[in-house]
């Protein structure tokens, strides 16, 4: 200590109790030495663990949902469109065909020659001759579409190349209850849409429109026949409803309320010679 004199500081007397207390504390710490736990490090590690868990959980739960594949929805076809009915028309016709075969012994002429429709006189010689039904496949798309009820100005109908077989046929002319112009129509319930009414358009042999859309139902002119599966049979006679028909071969075209063609029948009108 050449430069400064720190004698008092250098000769500072440390109390002896300091030593005693230190030795006592050391022995005590040795005897009951608790497990030293670095609280700070432990808390830090625990906090890091929580953060990692939270991050992992959030990544797992918040991942974008898988793209939902668009559901391939096929456009639903309205029952009002003829396309819905048309594909099943042939199937319905086949069903009715099987049903009607057990009802009557009416002859069928599948794939009838189109020339027969243009020559009605050849088939309508006498009233006793059985009425013929031209059986052809159906192409409803060619039929006029007049959705309005009671229209008085129908379009020029294009003679369909196909008609509905077995859905419309007259009763046997030999039947005493038979009346000229009678027709029995078999209609599948799938065609009974809307209010369930059936419309009929009558065309002569020249494809001329004769009568208005006559609405017939079992409440007015038709008789409901049942017992043949799901087909509903309606009795229809335009002459009894007041329509004047000259002797000719007429075509009864039946439509439902949505103007979907149901069936067609070729009716021969001839009056017995009185």
């Amino acid at each position: 200590m050449s430069e400064f004199n720190f004698d008092k500081l250098s000769n500072l007397e440390i109390p002896e109790k300091w030593v005693d207390n230190t030795l006592s504390a050391s022995s005590t710490s040795k005897e009951s030495a608790p497990a030293f736990i670095n609280i700070r490090k432990t808390m830090t590690a625990f906090a890091c663990f929580l953060v990692v868990c939270l991050v992992g959980f959030s990544l797992f739960t918040l991942k974008p949902d898988k793209d939902i594949l668009p559901v391939d929805t096929t456009p639903t076809q309205s029952t009002e469109s003829s396309a819905d009915i048309n594909p099943t028309t042939e199937k319905e016709n086949e069903t009715v065909q099987k049903d009607t075969q057990t009802v009557t012994e009416a002859t069928e002429k599948p794939n009838a020659d189109r020339a027969e429709l243009k020559k009605p006189t050849e088939n309508t010689s006498t009233a006793t001759q059985p009425d013929e039904i031209v059986s052809e496949t159906n192409e409803p798309e060619n039929l006029p579409t007049d959705a309005t009820q009671g229209s008085t100005e129908p379009q020029e109908p294009s003679l369909p190349e196909v008609i509905f077989p077995d859905n419309g046929f007259p009763e046997d002319s030999s039947d005493p209850d038979y009346s000229v112009g009678d027709c029995l129509v078999g209609i599948s319930p799938g065609y009974l849409v809307g209010n369930g009414n059936i419309y009929c358009r009558i065309y002569n042999s020249n494809h001329e429109y004769i009568g208005d859309n006559n609405i017939f139902s079992d409440q007015h002119l038709a008789h409901f026949y049942s017992g043949f599966g799901s087909t509903y049979y309606y009795y229809y006679n335009p002459i009894k409803s007041g329509l004047v028909l000259e002797p000719d071969t007429y075509t009864y075209s039946f439509y439902n309320e949505h103007n979907v063609p149901i069936c067609r029948a070729k009716i021969v009108i001839s009056y017995p010679e009185s």
Partner: peptide, 23 residues
């Protein structure tokens, strides 16, 4: 002669160095 009291008036960083060096 003694400067112990003056040393105690210094800041700790000077005090430590001077003590270790001189004492």
């Amino acid at each position: 002669c003694d400067m112990s009291w003056a040393l105690m008036e210094l800041e700790p960083k000077y005090r430590e160095v001077l003590y270790l060096h001189y004492c």
